[in-house]
Nucleic acid binder design. Sequence first.
DNA 1: CGTGCCGGGTT
DNA 2: AACCCGGCACG
Length: 578
Amino acid sequence: MQARRLAKRSSLGSRRGGAALQPAGPAPAAAKEATLPGLPPPAPGPAPALARESWRPPRSAGTGPPRAAAAASPVLLLLGEEDEDEEGGSRRRRGLGRVEEKPRGGAEEEDDDEEDEDEEVVVEVVDGDEDDEDGEERFVPLGPGRSVPKGPARGTLKVGSTKREMTFTFQSEDLKRDCSKKMSHQHVFSLAMEEDVKTADTKKASRVLDHEKENTRSICLLEQKRKVVSSNIDVPPARKSSEELDMDKVTAAMVLTSLSTSPLVRSPPVRPNESLSGSWKEGGCVPSSTSSSGYWSWSAPSDQSNPSTPSPPLSADSFKPFRSPAQPDDGIDEAEASNLLFDEPIPRKRKNSMKVMFKCLWKNCGKVLSTAAGIQKHIRTIHLGRVGDSDYSDGEEDFYYTEIKLNTDSVADGLSSLAPVSPSQSLASPPTFPIPDSSRTETPCAKTETKLMTPLSRSAPTTLYLVHTDHAYQATPPVTIPGSAKFTPNGSSFSISWQSPPVTFTGIPVSPTHHHPVGTGEQRQHAHTVLSSPPRGTVSLRKPRGEGKKCRKVYGMENRDMWCTACRWKKACQRFLD
DNA sequence: CGTGCCGGGTT
DNA sequence: AACCCGGCACG
């Protein structure tokens, strides 16, 4: 044995020196040597040494990246190496190959890319409108640099932010409409919006447009018209007195509910048919109108389930814009929302299993607030488009909301789980979100969402909420809590839950992806991200055992000197990382 | 059985 | 630290 070792060593040393020597050696060595001398072209003395050097540098540089690269494209690596071995002189290739591989490979890189994308989206939103915004924007810093590339988006966002009411109305209507119509309408809206802004008649103009559109449509139009008509009809302001207001509201809401005329009642049935279109629309809408995404805030929390879902970030972004534009109303809404989401809902819920909430009955709007005043404001501001008149209420809003009893415990749990996380991890998550957004926008997400949503939507509204929370909760743990968390605050603050459940779903889909293998590339990415995030906590003590070829296989026992040192030492191969 | 790798030993 | 090997686990 010793002799053998000596021979090997000597051979190595000689080779390193640049000259193949030691003809005399033990049997095993003899084979090598025989081959070596006989193989001037294939593996000359210098070649191996160089090869080693070239190889090592990359490895030494960073074990992490190389591994990923190897995993991503083992074939390439192998090929490159083989080439070298065979040709002997092609060290360059190796080097190049590696370099190329590195970039490609790693999950890290992928993540980065995704992040970039996501960030871009986020940034757009944030930068666009949000400069004004406050603490919630902490996220912004994360993505700023990357966002640079997107100029146009900002413009769009700005528009959306300026005219939030517009956006909202639009969305609600959109849901009813077909996807195609949505797109066209959106464009029109955006244009209209801009114009309006310039004109300074934002609200009125938007409303007018909406009304016109509605007229054109037949099905849901009737209902909407009703609302419109009601809005036109002045409700007795007398209700203003807080007590009376509450009573009236409650009664009105009850009546409406019982009649089933209320949008809520309808929404469930309608959704199934249009849920798809709606979800799709949302996806399409999101990009164009950031504001819309913001409103989903409530759903956003549920989205949290999807670690990387775009919705959360968007919601946050959208949220900001809204605030800035509408000073009075926004402030109120925010305060209310925050109260509902953060203060009231969670604490209360925990304390009491049942909580009374006020839910907006407006089409496609599932916003739930803890206070009647809050819901009124919400309706007034968002659905009735009375920004300036926020203070003044004609009582019309009473017709658009209803009381609902929520099982707070479940919801609270979901929220609590989400909420706590969000703050701390908000920063970390940002990158993740962006990815989801991109994917979300696409149809695949919508599909998944739709599936999930449909069942939920059918169920009672309360159920919906619970379900959402659950989804979020479930998703959260495995995937990326951080990301979800961030949104939660934002979303919760708004607490508006458009049936956008689609949004929620978007988020959900990601985590669910595992359950429903939809073979979309995007989803796959999500899955990867998700999976990646939860590192394999404790891989068994022993290394899995490299699947790929190892030095031994590649070079064979004959060329043991070409092995990586680790292989030579019977250690984990460092050249062909798995 | 061949292989990949860990744990440990020797230099 | 470099080098090496016994021995285990895995396929």
